[in-house]
């Protein structure tokens, strides 16, 4: 029996009078790569923001590893090992790549303010651990040479990789990627596909992604959920989704002019 990692039950979210997400149900099974697609404004990023704790859902529940996480603060959800990236890269662009990775280990600092002031044994031990782990992660991502660079000075494609590496410093079981291929050239995109595949194998992750580029979605995702106006249209394999009349209608209209 496959293990459910994330379970979304009857999720509804309203902004004032606008229902951005309505009655959404979704299960993400351990070890799969699933996609969330839909036309612009369909509520995809809102779903991500609900799961990562930026919004508290109006109705419904979000269960992660069986624990209810709606209502928790984003940093509390991050500490439960859910990593995420953003559609527009949100690195701390004026802090070094190394600092970006190190700060993202706040969830397991292991020392407090006093330890930092007095530079106690505990402080040194944990700082060393964080530093070593950060270097190890950068090494795995072949970013070691850039450890002391500021992200703002790096090319866009590299920034994407740094952002994914940063999300992985949370040691997540679930990685949520919000349009990882946005703004990449077509050669970068095929590289990204291999890259995501590699991350999944190497870090034993479950990946949930929003993506517009069908090439990425079709070649990676075992299951795809399509939403429009916050409601579910179809869930199925790439082939099923591609041939679904509802999806074609949502993207292209119903053919009557």
């Amino acid at each position: 029996m496959a293990e459910t990692l994330l379970e979304i039950k009857d999720l509804t979210h309203r902004f004032g009078g606008l229902t951005a997400v309505s009655d959404l149900n979704f299960e993400i099974i351990k070890d799969e790569i699933v996609g969330l697609i839909g036309p612009n404004g369909a509520g995809k990023t809102t779903v991500f923001n609900l799961v990562s704790g930026f919004y508290v859902p109006s109705e419904g529940d979000i269960l992660y590893k069986g624990e209810r996480i709606n209502g928790l603060k984003p940093h509390e959800i991050a500490s439960r090992q859910i990593g995420r990236t953003f559609q527009n890269i949100r690195l701390w662009s004026d802090m070094t790549v190394l600092d970006n990775i190190k700060i993202s280990q706040h969830y397991r600092l292991g020392y407090n303010l006093m330890d930092a002031f007095l530079q106690t044994k505990k402080y040194k031990k944990h700082e060393k651990m964080i530093e070593d782990d950060a270097h190890e992660l950068l090494e795995e991502f072949q970013l070691s040479d850039l450890a002391h660079e500021m992200p703002k000075n790096l090319p866009y494609g590299i920034q994407r990789r740094v952002e994914i590496a940063r999300a992985l410093s949370l040691k997540p079981a679930l990685l949520m990627l919000d349009e990882p291929a946005a703004g990449l050239s077509s050669s970068d995109v095929s590289e990204l596909i291999q890259y995501i595949q590699w991350i999944k194998e190497n870090f034993k992750l479950t990946i949930w992604m929003i993506e517009h580029q069908m090439q990425v979605i079709m070649s990676l995702c075992s299951r795809i959920k399509v939403i429009d106006f916050g409601k579910e249209l179809v869930t199925g394999t790439a082939e099923e989704v591609r041939n679904s009349p509802e999806v074609i209608k949502a993207y292209l209209g119903d053919g009557e002019i």
Partner: peptide, 17 residues
Amino acid sequence: SSIRYDETSAEIMSVNT
């Protein structure tokens, strides 16, 4: 300092802002 550069990503990266 991470709050100064981007508070949203600080929260997402487990910093209790």
